[in-house]
């Protein structure tokens, strides 16, 4: 474990917590893409499938973190699609998730480290996570604005994988550890946030709201 991965995981936890708090406190999921949250839940379940296959005693923080990610993302989907369904902005959350899931699944079957079920699921989860934020960014571009709290969520969510890139650089240099698939997908994922990062740093930090087109 290195400082970059630690802060990356903390940033990821913060993003999940911020979103849950926003929905729970405002009792509304306006401005939140349910599809993105569904895709994240699929990512966690397919990536941590080993938790289900053979029960593991919660002996280390990693297992606990995996369970937190899975349960929090499923709970977030429950809030969006059931509890606060009336506030779900289905009309603007209109990006076709199939256009993200099918190519990720196809690519996972073509480009992977080992052609076995667990490895393919893990690879699918990595590819899907890289593009899972697109429905959320699409929704913001359709509505033309993002609530400040949602911007903080996106900043934390984007920072998590950006910090992981620093973690991979660190591990390459000190542990000669390389995972090309995760690195390439992580770079693509972080690049998708660049436009938002620019808006966040130039606007939200100064207390303004993000309004598109910028």
């Amino acid at each position: 474990m290195n400082i970059f991965r630690l802060f990356g995981d903390l940033s990821h936890l913060a993003a999940i917590a911020i979103l849950l708090l926003k929905i729970w406190k405002t009792r509304s999921c306006a401005g939140v893409s349910g599809k993105t949250q569904l895709l994240f839940a699929v990512c966690f379940i397919t990536r941590y499938i080993d938790l289900f296959l053979h029960f593991v005693s919660l002996y280390n923080t990693e297992k606990v973190m995996k369970l937190i990610y899975i349960s929090a993302s499923v709970f977030t989907c429950y809030l969006i699609f059931f509890k606060f369904k009336a506030t779900y902005d289905g009309n603007h959350d209109s990006m076709r998730a199939e256009f993200l899931i099918v190519p990720a699944a196809g690519l996972a079957c073509l480009i992977n480290t080992k052609f076995d079920a667990i490895e393919i699921l893990w690879t699918f989860s990595i590819y899907l996570e890289a593009v899972a934020i697109l429905p959320q960014l699409f929704l913001i571009s359709k509505t033309g604005e993002a609530e400040t709290i949602t911007s903080h969520y996106l900043f934390a969510q984007g920072s998590y994988r950006a910090l992981y890139i620093l973690n991979w650089i660190y591990r390459y240099h000190y542990e000669s550890h390389v995972d090309t698939i995760a690195i390439v997908a992580g770079v693509v994922q972080t690049i998708l946030y660049c436009d938002f990062f620019y808006l966040y740093i130039t606007k939200v930090v100064k207390g303004q709201k993000i309004v598109l087109p910028a």
Binding site: D9, M65, W122, Y164, E175, A182
Partner: peptide, 10 residues
């Protein structure tokens, strides 16, 4: 040899 993708990350 670079040890490739040991699944030790979240």
């Amino acid at each position: 040899k670079l040890n490739v993708n040991s699944k030790d990350e979240l």
